[in-house]
Computed example of a mutant assay.
Amino acid sequence: MWNGDELDLDAYLARIGIGATDGDGSGARRRELRPDLETLYAVHRAHTAAIPFENLDVLLGRPVALEVKAIEDKLVHARRGGYCYEQNSLLAAALERIGFEVSGRGARNRTRGDSLLPVTHAVLVVTVEGEPWLCDAGFGYVGPREPVPLARPGAEVRQGAWTYAVHAEEEGVLVLRTLRGDEWRDLYAFSPQRYHPVDYVLLNHYSSSHPLSSFLGQAIVQYPGEDARVALVGRELTRLYPDGRTERASVAAEDLLPLLEREFGIRLSERDAAELVRIHRSGD
């Protein structure tokens, strides 16, 4: 389903920093990857640590392609980031290639209070030994860095200094929550309905082109760090800490490119960099 056979798995593993050889060049350790829980944790953790969330192609007026090879070229070989459809399509292809059972879900963002938002977020459900796990490498700086169990709603899951839980609602709806300070906050909700790659093509079209999409007109670059979650939205850089503290700072045009490289590991071509700075300055 996820065209995992088209993915250069070795290149992907090198990009996320796992599966290195034992030193003899044989790649022996890479062949040890199996569709078990240990591998799922390792791949998910490494992916979210290596590949940032970003919408810069949308801001630069480019279409966002979801074919496996196009995503591989951008996120793996060009060492860029991407948003949820790219991130989770790439993760799904890699997991499928390793041998996991992977299915998609569509989620509603709940980080904006009581507003009822459309289903625009792509997540994955991976089944390991009959137990479903939520996998999501594409919810930006507040998303989980590791899989979250779905078979035990209400169970708190610690991921370093961050805590998550899945809450069950009516009609089979599940809600991913995060603990910020001493307050639980909803991140997104999703139903049992399976989504397929073709469904993400439609959602991607909305997110990358609809006038009401939050991805239009401003840079959104985020990274779920272990000690602090970092987000650039427009001209504001935010650092979120596990205890709920938030630090904010404005980003000047001349600081934009060094910040992208320092905080998110993103280096753009000379042409794209110049255009991005121009867009950033246009709001002055």
Results as ranks from 00 to 15, higher is better:
S250A: 15
G17K: 06
D10A: 15
R15G: 09
G113S: 08
F53A: 04
D186G: 01
G25K: 03
R267C: 13
L60H: 04
G130V: 06
H121Y: 09
Q218L: 11
G244M: 09
I266C: 07
G27L: 03
V128H: 02
A155P: 03
P63M: 01
P144N: 04
T246A: 13
Y241T: 12
G82M: 04
L91T: 01
R177C: 13
E236P: 00
A161V: 09
A107W: 03
T238Y: 02
E171L: 04
R281A: 15
V201Q: 11
K74A: 07
V68W: 03
V128S: 05
R34E: 11
D272V: 09
V58H: 01
L117C: 12
A78D: 12
E131L: 14
Q159R: 11
A137N: 10
G225Y: 04
G217W: 10
L90G: 03
A252R: 03
L257W: 06
G104D: 05
L60Q: 00
D136N: 14
A249K: 15
K74M: 03
L212H: 09
G61S: 08
A92G: 08
G160R: 10
T21E: 13
V198K: 14
N55K: 00
L95C: 07
D114S: 14
H47P: 09
R79G: 02
E67M: 05
V277L: 01
V142A: 15
T39H: 10
